[in-house]
């Protein structure tokens, strides 16, 4: 769990997102719908983006889970966090953790990150404030930075 080992007993029906929020007080992961549509609850499980509302907590047993709270390292914002701030890619902020985690999944997956690729890659994340314009810009910026720092 965000780099630390965690053991817990959960009720079978508890969704992963509620385990994070209610049991671990990791409230950065938000809930925006009940139909696996909005992506607000997106986190990384073993490096892949998943909607934590559509996974039972018990299914996460033995996996590596990363939430928005685990993105900044040693007081340094993750490039995606910085890029969202730099590009005014958030307004109310409710979808933002999910957007950042979905973007992290896309970048981790590799492949092209053109505007179209990013837009299609965000098909499962809804934002009602920004019109996505600046979100797409922010992800392009961060993807570029992460690519160039990875090649150094």
């Amino acid at each position: 769990m965000n780099g630390a080992r965690l053991e817990a007993e959960v009720e079978p029906r508890q969704l992963l997102v509620y385990f994070l929020r209610d049991n671990l007080n990791l409230t950065g992961t938000t809930v925006g719908c009940d139909t696996t549509s909005c992506g607000a609850c997106t986190i990384l499980v073993d490096g892949k983006s998943v909607k934590s509302c559509t996974m039972l907590a018990v299914q996460a047993d033995g996996t590596e889970v990363t939430t928005i709270e685990g993105m900044a390292k040693d007081g340094e914002l993750h490039p995606l966090q910085r890029a969202f701030h730099d590009n005014h890619a958030l307004q109310c902020g409710y979808c933002t953790p999910g957007m950042i985690m979905a973007a992290a999944g896309l970048i981790q997956r590799g492949g092209d990150m053109s505007e179209d690729d990013i837009r299609l890659g965000l098909e499962g994340n809804l934002c009602r404030c920004t019109g996505y314009h600046n979100i797409v810009k922010a992800i392009q910026q961060a993807a570029g930075e992460m690519k160039s720092s990875a090649t150094v």
């Binding site: 409230t27 902020g93 953790p97």
Partner: peptide
């Protein structure tokens, strides 16, 4: 932004 991008907001 700082609280919103780090998951520290309080909704």
């Amino acid at each position: 932004d700082p609280e919103l991008i780090t998951g520290q907001a309080k909704y």
